Simulated scan of single mutants.
Amino acid sequence: MNTKQTIAIIGATGSMGTAISKSLAKGNYRLLLFSSKTEQLQALASQIQTLHPSADVIVSQCPTDASWEADIIILAVPYQAQQELAGKIKQVANQKIVISIANPLNETYDGLVTAPDTSAAEQLQLLLPHSKIVKAFSTVFAADFAQPVISQKQADAFIAGDDQEALEVVEQLVSIAGFNPIVAGGLQVSRTLESMTLLLIQLNIRYDYNWLAGWKILHH
């Protein structure tokens, strides 16, 4: 009998955090939701219980406590908040899977604030050296979670990481969320994935995709 895994979603009330929380509530997981916006957090938990009455959802008052209890930690926060949060969870995240969804965009969406030889995910790995960092959910928009099939095609969601076991666990999460998971390579590939998201945002702005757009690898 498989033990139910616990997932801490830090930053659960943001657009991505909300989308991830609602989509993973469909799976057989225990969800620990944290956000500094307490009222919004309670409302989100109530919405999830209404949508999925059997969902195991708990509101947490502290990111450290939530991460301590969790098997998997999802940092659903902007890149700018990554370093501070990493400091709060470092001692309780040893050997755990930590998912980086952050894209280090500049304010005008015409570039990344990270240097070309690094990425938000690689920086998180340096901050959490004993955690298994996986880049995931970074190449899809929040609106895609409610509609992962776009123009009759299931959107691909790319994953990058150096730990094979962790990648397999995250592949399953991505599938439950409704996307087609594609392991793109080691954590260094997250540099490419973060640039892909920048491009998708630029294309969304130019062609008015209404934030419902994604990548699809077409192949035989």
Score class of each variant (00 low, 15 high):
residue 204 N to R: 07
residue 105 L to G: 00
residue 54 S to D: 13
residue 95 Q to T: 15
residue 83 Q to V: 11
residue 92 V to G: 10
residue 41 L to N: 07
residue 96 K to E: 01
residue 152 Q to H: 14
residue 139 T to A: 01
residue 196 M to Y: 11
residue 3 T to E: 13
residue 28 N to M: 08
residue 169 V to D: 03
residue 43 A to Q: 09
residue 47 Q to H: 09
residue 207 Y to I: 00
residue 92 V to P: 13
residue 141 F to P: 02
residue 52 H to D: 08
residue 70 A to P: 01
residue 46 S to E: 14
residue 47 Q to N: 15
residue 177 A to V: 09
residue 20 I to T: 07
residue 18 T to H: 14
residue 136 A to K: 03
residue 78 P to V: 10
residue 185 G to E: 07
residue 141 F to Q: 11
residue 91 Q to A: 15
residue 65 D to P: 01
residue 91 Q to L: 11
residue 72 I to D: 01
residue 158 F to C: 00
residue 199 L to Q: 00
residue 116 P to K: 07
residue 144 D to W: 03
residue 104 P to H: 02
residue 72 I to H: 03
residue 70 A to I: 02
residue 110 D to W: 08
residue 167 L to W: 03
residue 174 V to R: 10
residue 67 S to M: 12
residue 110 D to V: 08
residue 35 S to D: 15
residue 121 A to Y: 05
residue 149 V to G: 05
residue 178 G to R: 08
residue 188 Q to S: 08
residue 19 A to E: 08
residue 111 G to H: 03
residue 139 T to R: 04
residue 177 A to K: 05
residue 117 D to C: 06
residue 111 G to D: 06
residue 119 S to A: 10
residue 122 E to N: 03
residue 39 E to I: 02
residue 39 E to M: 06
residue 9 I to N: 10
residue 152 Q to W: 07
residue 20 I to H: 10
residue 35 S to T: 08
residue 211 W to S: 12
residue 49 Q to W: 05
residue 142 A to Q: 06
residue 150 I to Y: 02
residue 77 V to E: 04
residue 126 L to T: 13
residue 86 A to R: 10
residue 183 V to P: 00
residue 38 T to Y: 10
residue 161 G to V: 00
residue 215 W to L: 14
residue 30 R to I: 03
residue 92 V to D: 05
residue 23 S to T: 12
residue 54 S to Q: 15
residue 137 F to R: 07
residue 53 P to D: 10
residue 73 I to R: 09
residue 209 Y to A: 00
residue 70 A to M: 04
residue 141 F to W: 07
residue 79 Y to V: 02
residue 136 A to T: 02
residue 64 T to Q: 15
residue 49 Q to P: 02
residue 138 S to I: 00
residue 96 K to V: 01
residue 6 T to C: 13
residue 151 S to P: 02
residue 129 P to S: 13
residue 219 H to L: 06
residue 65 D to Q: 12
residue 154 Q to F: 02
residue 104 P to S: 12
residue 99 I to W: 02
residue 171 E to L: 07
residue 116 P to H: 11
residue 2 N to H: 11
residue 154 Q to S: 14
residue 82 Q to V: 08
residue 4 K to C: 04
residue 10 I to Y: 12
residue 11 G to P: 09
residue 194 E to D: 09
residue 74 I to F: 06
residue 77 V to K: 08
residue 81 A to M: 07
residue 56 D to S: 05
residue 89 I to Y: 01
residue 162 D to Y: 00
residue 147 Q to E: 14
residue 99 I to M: 01
residue 119 S to Y: 05
residue 205 I to T: 12
residue 122 E to P: 02
residue 26 K to D: 12
residue 55 A to Q: 03
residue 172 Q to M: 06
residue 177 A to S: 05
residue 109 Y to F: 15
residue 76 A to S: 06
residue 110 D to K: 11
residue 176 I to K: 08
residue 36 S to F: 12
residue 55 A to H: 01
residue 120 A to E: 04
residue 211 W to Y: 10
residue 77 V to Q: 10
residue 11 G to R: 12
residue 161 G to M: 11
residue 103 N to D: 03
residue 139 T to I: 00
residue 7 I to G: 09
residue 193 L to H: 05
residue 181 P to D: 04
